[in-house]
């Protein structure tokens, strides 16, 4: 899976789960602001990524990621690990 396919898939599942307009998800946008994430809903993001791409990720790592572009790179790194 290349980055373009992966980012399209991530955007699609995030927009559905967090009930936001997919157009608001841009590479530079802030994840927490765009998805209206708080400390309770961060785990939903982790579970969704794990479930969609069949990877294990650390919640601590994810909480440090700010932009969607960084998230794509992070997930890509996990898939190719």
């Amino acid at each position: 899976m290349n980055k373009q396919e992966l980012s399209a898939k991530i955007n699609e599942v995030l927009a559905e789960e967090f009930e936001v307009d997919i157009e608001t998800i841009t590479p530079e946008a802030d994840i927490k602001k765009t998805l209206d994430l708080d400390s309770l809903s961060l785990v939903d993001l982790v579970a969704l990524i794990e479930d969609t791409f069949d990877v294990k990720i650390d919640g601590q790592d994810v909480s440090k990621i700010q932009s969607f572009d960084s998230l794509y790179d992070f997930v890509l790194g996990k898939i190719n690990a």
């Binding site: 400390s39 961060l42 785990v43 579970a47 794990e50 919640g59 909480s63």
Partner: peptide, 10 residues
């Protein structure tokens, strides 16, 4: 157990 983040376990 499903996942864990920010001190919250799912």
């Amino acid at each position: 157990y499903v996942s864990e983040a920010a001190g919250v376990i799912l």
